[in-house]
């Protein structure tokens, strides 16, 4: 197997693993979550928080 093919294999495996982890995380999370309105502008609700600026 040449380097190019090996890398393709590794990158494909990497993304399969990423998708699997997201699916696992989604399936394992418990508890109810209040879904926010589709668009923040005009919703009357504050942003959920969780931004790089520290909010």
């Amino acid at each position: 197997m040449n380097g190019r093919r090996l890398f393709s294999l590794i990158s494909n495996l990497f993304w399969v693993l990423v998708v699997a982890l997201i699916a696992l995380d989604t399936a394992s999370s418990t508890g109810s979550r209040v879904e926010p309105p589709p668009i923040a502008l005009g919703s009357g609700q504050a942003a959920s928080g969780g931004h790089c600026s520290g909010r």
């Binding site: 668009i39 923040a40 502008l41 942003a47 931004h51």
Partner: peptide, 22 residues
């Protein structure tokens, strides 16, 4: 993005969250 999310576009917070979850 700002109109939909209510906060500016960000990158690193999400990546750190992935690390924390892992």
């Amino acid at each position: 993005h700002l109109v939909v999310a209510g906060q500016p576009w960000g990158i690193v917070y999400g990546i750190g969250l992935w690390g924390a979850k892992l």
